[in-house]
């Protein structure tokens, strides 16, 4: 366990030196939060109260789906995993450290958004911060799980980027982040139900802010939990399969 924490500490420091990670985990989400958040809060008053939640979902989804897969695929392609393995560092440790470090970065950026959203964009503070934290952790784990799944499935970095975009764009457009899911055409509203962001947005609104939502909050929490478990199980299975093939 000591080895794991030393590895995690080294990985976190290495991430801070990596411009790509800084961009996808911190810079782009925070710039998006400030710029797009300002625009959205002024043109769509409905989104203003829950801006911290929607911007956190954006940041978490972007970081997890766009940022997490590439280093994993690169580690496989470049031979880093093999080099680690023959030097006694197990594949499982690489995956675990990768997952935990992504969660830490995305949690930090979400907390920054949570703290500064009311100050900069005059959004509401959640009436139930504990429940806000619960939903945040669930969407964070579900998104990182999906990111790890993409990283374990994609054969190359370009494939990983493509799959990431296929997941990320519908999440932003249909998941209720940019505008309420209720104003979407019925077909898209149905399609949005396959995205964890939809349930996270509904759960944030009802549980953390006490607003009305079209889905029952308990159901949203249950589905988000299901996404987390399914994504991680599938990711582990794919990762093991890819390692065996190597």
């Amino acid at each position: 366990m000591k080895s794991f924490f030393i590895y995690l500490g080294i990985q976190l420091k290495a991430d801070i030196r990596d411009r790509g990670i800084l961009m996808t985990y911190y810079l782009v989400p925070l710039v998006f939060f400030v710029v797009i958040g300002s625009i959205f809060s002024s043109i769509n008053p409905l989104m203003k109260p829950v801006l911290a939640a929607s911007m956190s979902i954006f940041a978490v989804t972007m970081g997890a789906v766009m940022g997490t897969p590439l280093p994993l695929v690169r580690a496989r392609e470049s031979g880093t995993l093999r080099a680690f393995r023959i030097n006694g560092i197990p594949d499982g440790a690489v995956l675990a450290v990768h997952t935990v470090s992504a969660c830490i970065h995305l949690f930090i950026v979400s907390i920054v958004i949570y703290v500064f959203s009311p100050v900069l964009l005059h959004s509401d503070r959640p009436s139930h911060p504990g429940l806000y934290l619960l939903v945040l952790l669930l969407i964070l784990l579900a998104s990182v799980g999906i990111g790890i799944l993409i990283g374990s499935t994609a054969r190359s970095q370009s494939t990983a980027s493509m799959i990431s975009m296929l997941v990320f764009l519908p999440t932003v457009m249909l998941g209720g982040i940019m505008f309420p899911a209720s104003i979407l055409p019925p077909l898209f509203e149905k399609a949005a139900l396959v995205l964890p962001a939809t349930y996270a947005m509904q759960a944030f609104s009802s549980l953390a802010y006490g607003l009305n939502s079209s889905l029952h909050p308990a159901f949203c929490i249950f589905v988000l939990g299901g996404f987390c478990i399914a994504a991680f199980i599938l990711a582990l299975w794919r990762f093991a399969a890819v390692i065996r093939k190597q």
Binding site: Q11, R17, D18
Partner: peptide
């Protein structure tokens, strides 16, 4: 042919491998 994480320092890589050994 192999590689290591690009942004890790050499000292960190050596420390990491020694930790696992």
């Amino acid at each position: 042919s192999s590689s290591l994480p690009d942004s890790m320092l050499v000292s960190e890589i050596i420390r990491l491998v020694c930790t696992y050994h």
